[in-house]
């Protein structure tokens, strides 16, 4: 996405918050990838990602265009939200922060691209990947729910991941 596109979409959302939808679609995977890499827990990552986008929507009017991609602003909000979160949970449990290092921008882009490619998998492959990696179900459970043999589910799993690797390599070629 070019900076001009970015700017156009931000200005549209500033005029009409209903246009924020498009900024969400374009940046959801990046923000989520960044947050989950830093907190390492799905539920906390969801809470924090929601917090980032709600804050961004509420503050879109105050966003000043300075030629920096919109995602940089979102990741700044995310970074602050994570710091606040650790401060709160640190007070409660005295646990150290799980992953204080910020992931490199290339890693975020790579994860975000992978997550977007999952959305574009053929339906059967997408279902298997979602059930296996998000819902963390066993091959047997998935086979039962989808009414397929365990062998067929394993094949769909491998096919999906081969598909993803091919597309990731294609994108980086």
């Amino acid at each position: 996405m070019s900076l001009d596109d970015d700017r156009e979409r931000v200005e549209a959302a500033q005029r009409d918050p209903a246009c924020f939808d498009e900024l969400y679609e374009r940046n959801f995977h990046r923000v989520y990838a960044y947050v989950v890499r830093r907190v390492g827990d799905r539920h906390q990552a969801e809470d924090l990602t929601a917090e980032v986008f709600r804050e961004a929507l509420a503050g879109i009017g105050k966003f000043e265009w300075r030629g920096v991609p919109f995602i940089a602003w979102l990741l700044r909000i995310a970074s602050r939200a994570i710091a606040d979160h650790w401060q709160r949970s640190g007070r409660e449990s005295a646990n150290p922060a799980p992953n204080a290092d910020r992931p490199a921008p290339e890693e975020i882009e790579r994860s975000a691209m992978l997550f977007q490619l999952v959305d574009r998998l053929p339906e059967a492959q997408f279902r298997v990947i979602h059930m296996r990696f998000v819902e963390q179900k066993s091959i047997r459970e998935i086979a039962g729910e989808l009414g397929r043999s365990e062998g067929a589910v394993k094949q769909l799993q491998l096919r999906a991941i081969e598909n993803l690797r091919a597309q990731m390599e294609g994108a980086h070629a």
Binding site: F20, F28, L57, H130
Partner: peptide
């Protein structure tokens, strides 16, 4: 680390409601 598609949809609806 794949996000839950249901979470992505719920958050989208929540943001649309807030935007409205």
């Amino acid at each position: 680390d794949l996000p839950d598609e249901n979470f992505q949809k719920r958050l989208r609806s929540d943001l649309q409601r807030r935007a409205t």
